[in-house]
Design a protein around this nucleic acid. Structure first.
Lengths: 206, 206
DNA sequence: TAACAATCGGAACATGAATTCCGGTTTCGG
DNA sequence: CCGAAACCGGAATTCATGTTCCGATTGTTA
């Protein structure tokens, strides 16, 4: 909420001084990387260091750590919503639903911070999701896949964030050296979501 | 690891003075409740307060917060292993596997701390799981359910902790007022795990 | 280019939580 | 019942991090 956007000054010239704008970007970029790698425990001084900026500068743009986290979360959820709208266009309804879930797993796999927000910041997550219009999007995605008879009828849109959350966590479990066992687990969950008796039975029936 | 068990003193009388034993139990009980309710962020002074004991006493029994957490985790994992051994006896192999997964969801639903250990303490979880013999147990459970043809053949025991983790997280997602949507999601995941074409198709084929 | 204001950097501070310390108390063998 | 040993309680300390502050710097406008 308390972000410093381009709105306050009257309406002339760069709303933020050139160096300020540059630093703001640097901070966001650095924070994105740090939070993605180390999770929400990443420290503000480190963000500043990574952005080659003083802590004070970080705090001028984001009054509190939570604000920075929220800003990054909003960006990620916006990205997810974008994917959602795209999935809604897919010719095959099931494919759309399915790739949306998969995408939610992917972005979490690459971003520990996002995963942690989903798991331990219901407020931030709720706000960001709401702002991105995800509830409606999920509802459409669900209804559409159900109309085509490929998604179980007892699924409701509220189940989607829960599934995304669970899938995100799976994504973070320490994997043996031969990484990459989560994509298959996501497939399995999707199989569970498929309507029994729908045309597309999982894989070939052995 | 650094727990104070009944091993050190020679071998005479109560190995711990009566009051010490009593307090130790009180601390464990209090910690169990606090961590279950508030997660790993519960504070040591609060544990002490809840146990009606001074902080010093807590620290005499558990040199560090992590030790207390580990002790509780070990207890929970032992309980899970017990359930695992029991499930291995079930007449129906699938039912055994299935109820084991469900049980892992249940104990996490009731214990936020346990869920957090699984999600952010790979070391503690790994040690506790190992100590309880869970890897072997999971392997047996998986193999058995596969032999009976009811569990997908591509599942390996390493998938079990990941699934348990994901399911545990789902369990913790803030639910609307009409609580309790996770059990159905667990069912769905189990459906996904069922071998395609196995006798037990999910629910009735509508 | 001068002057003003916005911005910067990072040392210093504030806060909150874990952990230590030690004088007083309780247990228990003799 | 006595005294040593073990144990207790909780104030005080330590430590890690988020956050504030302010003199120095830089961008902007006239």
């Amino acid at each position: 909420m308390s972000n410093v956007t381009e709105l306050d000054p009257p309406a002339a010239g760069p709303l933020l001084r050139a160096d300020a704008r540059r630093n703001r970007e640097a901070v966001i970029a650095a924070a994105k990387k740090l939070f993605a790698d180390q999770g929400l425990d990443a420290q503000m001084p480190d963000v500043a260091k990574a952005a080659k900026v003083g802590v004070g500068t970080v705090y001028r743009h984001f009054p509190a750590k939570e604000d920075l986290i929220a800003a990054l979360a909003e960006e990620r959820f916006e990205r997810l919503a974008e994917k959602g709208r795209e999935s809604l266009e897919a010719e095959d309804a099931w494919a759309g639903f399915s790739e949306f879930i998969q995408f939610s797993a992917e972005i979490q796999a690459e971003d520990r911070g996002l995963c942690e927000v989903m798991g331990s910041r219901p407020d931030v997550m709720g706000a960001a999701a709401e702002a991105a219009g995800l509830p409606e999007l999920c509802d459409k995605l669900v209804k559409r896949a159900q109309r085509s008879g490929e998604l179980r009828g007892d699924v409701e849109w509220e189940d989607v964030p829960m599934i995304a959350c669970g899938v995100g966590r799976i994504t973070q479990v320490e994997d043996g050296p031969g990484t990459g066992r989560w994509p298959r687990l996501v497939e399995i969950i999707l199989d569970g979501l498929r309507a029994p008796g729908s045309g597309k039975l999982p894989k070939a029936i052995v």
